[in-house]
């Protein structure tokens, strides 16, 4: 079985985000970018399936600017076998919407015929949480989002999902789309020798035109603003003062 892993290049989760003064977006020039953390978990899970003999090949795919090469090299250094980059934007501020990403991934699936797709549940930049479900609709495949555990059992996958009430386990027919939640695994760091080896692994470059997909946005960004700031609070010296303040506020 082949496993396809979509990985997105996003602002590093430790970076302090700054909204551009002209309200057109978030400043991404010269900030540290990394693989979306949920996608690291997806790559890790795919590699573990390969190590367990349940998958033969792991293919990482990224859609975005040319610099997403780096993200794919990270996936290769972690253990993916090859990578596909679909260059769909030339400005780092141009985000490709999940619907367009899903259409491109569907086209890749038609060519590659994977048995399983493992992606992240959410990209930490747009916070949409949509691509996996959209891809499942376009392929007509089963979906198992927010995976906490994943077991492949012949032509089915059993997935425990993190849901509002706790955990829900479902059994889905393969091929299927799985999205990762935080507790699925702890991704490995790429070792230096593996980073070196990754430089020689195949990384194919494509464009949306190669797949005949229109990546034009459906959502027009009217404005990007700072969230309202909270007024500064006060430090209290002890529990008695705290209790008095809370009573005064009428919240206890």
């Amino acid at each position: 079985m082949k496993v396809l892993v979509p990985v997105k290049r996003v602002i590093d989760y430790n970076v302090k985000v700054r909204v551009k003064a002209d309200g057109t977006g978030v400043d991404l020039a010269n900030v540290k970018m990394s693989m979306n953390p949920f996608d690291e978990i997806a790559v890790e899970e795919a590699i573990r399936l390969k190590e367990a003999g349940k998958a033969e090949e792991v293919v990482a795919v990224s859609i975005g600017v040319k610099q997403a090469q780096e993200t794919l090299r990270t996936a290769l250094a972690m253990g993916a076998d090859r990578a596909i980059l679909i260059v769909a934007a030339d400005d780092v501020h141009q985000d490709i919407e999940p619907l367009a990403v899903a259409k491109l991934l569907k086209a890749v699936i038609d060519e590659e015929q994977p048995g399983l797709v493992i992606g992240g549940k959410q990209a930490i930049d747009n916070d949409l949480n949509a691509t996996g479900q959209m891809l499942a609709a376009l392929t007509g495949w089963a979906q198992a989002t927010n995976a906490n555990t994943l077991d492949i059992d012949g032509d089915h996958a059993v997935v425990a999902r993190e849901v509002d009430g706790g955990l829900q386990t479902i059994k889905v027919k393969m091929p299927a789309i799985v999205t990762t939640d935080l507790r699925l695994n702890e991704p490995r760091y790429a070792s230096l020798p593996n980073i070196m080896k990754a430089k020689k692994k195949p990384l194919e470059e494509k464009t949306p035109e190669d797949y005949g997909v229109d990546v034009g946005p459906r959502l027009e960004v009217v404005k990007t603003a700072e969230p309202p700031e909270r007024a500064a609070g006060e430090m209290v010296a002890d529990v008695d003062t705290l209790v008095a303040k809370l009573k005064e506020k009428g919240v206890v």
Binding site: V26, I124, D127, R218, L219, V221, V222, T224, E226
Partner: peptide, 16 residues
């Protein structure tokens, strides 16, 4: 809708 962990609020207009 909030983006970037609520570090920004985006106003979007849908053409769909």
């Amino acid at each position: 809708r909030p983006i970037y962990a609520g570090n920004a609020v985006q106003t979007v207009k849908s053409k769909d």
